[in-house]
C-alpha cells in the first residue's frame, strides 16, 4: 500500500490541492480531510496546509484550533505520528500549543511572497530526518504573519535541544534567531513557514521541498 497522507482542510485553507499534488508527484497517496473528521489513525502522516483558515479572523489559526479534527490531530501526534504544519498550519499548531511560541506580523508590515534560502539546522525531526545538517534549501515563503517569536526561556530550550529545524539565511520577516521552522520535544510535530509543496517540481523553480515530504513520510518518525 502506498504511503497515505491526510491533508487537513478548513474553511479558508487554500494550499491543500498544491500539497496533494506534491505528495502524489512523489508516489504517495494523499486525501483531503475536512475539519470535522474525528478519526485519523489510518494515515501515515498528517499535513496542515497553508491558507487563511476562518479568514485569519482574530489571529491566524485561532478559530481553526477549536475544530473537531484538532482533537484527532493531537491524538495522532501524541502517539508519535509525524505531523507537519505549513504556514497557516504552523500558526495553527502554535495556537493549539502543539508547538511553542507564536507567529506575529512581519517586522516590515508587508505581505512577503518570494523564494528564500533556509539552512537545515537539525536532522532529528520528522521534517528533516533525511536531510543533511547545514544543507541549504530554496523554498518560497508567502505570509504576512511569519515572524516567529517566543519568550527567552522557550528560545533557550529550542536552541539547546536542537529544535530549530530550518533557519533563514537572510531573515525576511524579523523572526527571532531567524527561525523558519521548529519541532516539538519528541521531534514528530514540525511547523515551518516556507512552502515545500511549492518547491516540488522543476517547473516551480525548486524541488527542495520533496526531501522534506520524504523525511516526513519515510524518515525516522514514519509509521
Amino acid at each position: 500500500m502506498p504511503i497515505n497522507v491526510a491533508v487537513i482542510t478548513f474553511p479558508g485553507t487554500n494550499c491543500e490541492y498544491d500539497t496533494v499534488k506534491a505528495l502524489e508527484r512523489i508516489g504517495y497517496s494523499a486525501e483531503l480531510v475536512w475539519h470535522d473528521a474525528v478519526e485519523l489513525n489510518a494515515y501515515d502522516a498528517l499535513i496542515l496546509p497553508g491558507g487563511f483558515s476562518y479568514g485569519d479572523y482574530l489571529r491566524p489559526g485561532a478559530i481553526a484550533r477549536f475544530s473537531p479534527v484538532m482533537q484527532a490531530v493531537e491524538e495522532f501526534a501524541r502517539s508519535g505520528g509525524p505531523v507537519l504544519g505549513i504556514c497557516n498550519g504552523f500558526q495553527l499548531l502554535a495556537e493549539a500549543h502543539l508547538l511553542p511560541g507564536a507567529l506575529q506580523k512581519n517586522v516590515s508590515l508587508r505581505f512577503i511572497c518570494r523564494d528564500v534560502e533556509v539552512r537545515v539546522d537539525t536532522v532529528r525531526s520528522s521534517l528533516t530526518s533525511l536531510a543533511s545538517k547545514g544543507q541549504i534549501l530554496s523554498l518560497p515563503i508567502n505570509h504576512f504573519e511569519g515572524n516567529y517569536t517566543c519568550d527567552d526561556a522557550t528560545l533557550k530550550i529550542l536552541e539547546e535541544d536542537e529544535r530549530v529545524l530550518l533557519r533563514y539565511i537572510d531573515n525576511p520577516n524579523g523572526s527571532v534567531h531567524s527561525i523558519a521552522g521548529i519541532c516539538n520535544e519528541e521531534g514528530n510535530i514540525a511547523g515551518m513557514m516556507p512552502h515545500p509543496e511549492r518547491a516540488s517540481d522543476e517547473l516551480l523553480g525548486s524541488t527542495d521541498g520533496i526531501l522534506l515530504f520524504r523525511s516526513l513520510c519515510e524518515g525516522k518518525f514514519s509509521r
Binding site: A102, T149, D151
Partner: peptide
C-alpha cells in the same frame, strides 16, 4: 481561552 494569545 480564545480572544488573546498569551504568548504575544
Amino acid at each position: 481561552k480564545l480572544l488573546a494569545n498569551p504568548v504575544i
